Simulated scan of single mutants.
Amino acid sequence: MRLEEASAAIREAFPEAWVDLAVAITEFGGAAVLMIVLAVLYWLTRRREAALVVSYAVAGVGFILVLKTLIGLPRPPEDVYLIAYDGDPYGFPSGHAFAASLVYGGLLLAFDRYRDPVAIAATGVVIALVSLSRVVLGLHYLGDVIVGALVGLGFLLAVHAVVDGEPRRGFALGAVLGVPAVLVTGGDPDALVALGGSLGGVLASTRLGSLPDLRSRLEGGVLVAVGGTAIGAGVALESIVGSLLSNLLAPAAIVAVNAALFVAILLAPAAVGRLAIGPLDASR
């Protein structure tokens, strides 16, 4: 089922000199890059649609963590890893393949690009590359990533139908899935982030309809700078909180920090919109 022989053939065929390329590609299915991509799209493009995909992403984290933990199938042996890895021990299904399928596929649906063959092909290539990079790096078997991508697509279609274009519903679903994820995984950091982000999203999404439109490229640049600073501060604060507080208090604090971080990300346009930033002529 996990296609171990095919996985070994892929690893052996991949030139070790290109490992850095595989590492770069795999990050496009990781939480950090996906968060940055979605945040920038939210700040600079159609905010309701981007917020919808953000809600899919945080809901998906809780779902895939519970699924992986309950199935409990291990990753490949460490002697085939091409990079150091200290994350969760479960390999089936692949979380990166799931996330890539969910987020990039979600962008196709939310931004109404699912009828565009070029957009569909590009999305498929990104999902395939992220998935194969996990096999190349030795962190998953080929079967893990195939199932991960398919489960991601299935989850996307289901949540897209349930949420029905309302980001707040997506974030509420994320909170519902986040609670069992925290309990089943014993407080996995990703589960805490997803739960906190979902709660923050529920609070902030009530203001989406009243956010000001982007007025200029200059304002867009300021928004990315302010929002990026907020993300950096949130990540730093989460690390500090995790190291200073006791094991009993740290999970609740991490959830609170991430709730505040998602509120800051989603409401940053309101704060920047109050600044006197004039329009920038597109021809300049």
Rank of each mutant, 00 (worst) to 15 (best):
Y85K: 02
Y85C: 04
Y85A: 04
D86M: 01
G87S: 09
P89R: 03
Y90E: 11
Y90M: 08
Y90V: 01
Y90L: 09
P93S: 13
H96Q: 07
A97H: 04
F98N: 01
F98L: 00
A99H: 06
A100H: 02
Y104S: 09
G105M: 10
G105N: 11
G105C: 07
G106K: 12
L107N: 00
L109D: 09
L109V: 06
L109R: 14
F111Q: 05
F111S: 04
R113W: 11
Y114E: 14
D116I: 09
P117Q: 04
P117E: 03
A119G: 05
A121V: 15
A122M: 15
T123D: 11
V125A: 14
I127D: 02
I127W: 04
A128V: 13
L129N: 03
L129M: 12
L129P: 00
V130L: 00
V130W: 00
S131K: 07
S131M: 06
L132N: 07
L132D: 09
L132Y: 05
L132G: 04
R134H: 09
V135Q: 10
V135E: 12
L137E: 13
G138D: 15
H140K: 10
H140N: 15
L142M: 11
G143Y: 09
D144T: 13
V145I: 06
V145Y: 00
V147Q: 03
V147N: 08
V147Y: 02
G148A: 05
A149I: 03
A149F: 03
A149E: 10
V151E: 14
V151S: 13
G152N: 12
L153I: 12
G154Q: 11
F155K: 12
L156Q: 14
A158S: 13
V159A: 10
H160P: 06
A161E: 15
V162R: 14
V162E: 15
V163E: 13
P167V: 02
R168C: 00
G170S: 07
F171L: 04
L173S: 03
L173E: 03
A175E: 11
L177A: 14
A181V: 08
V182C: 01
L183S: 09
L183V: 15
T185H: 04
G186E: 01
G187V: 00
G187I: 01
P189G: 00
L192K: 08
V193K: 01
V193M: 02
V193H: 01
L195A: 06
G196Q: 10
G196H: 08
G197A: 09
G197E: 08
S198Y: 05
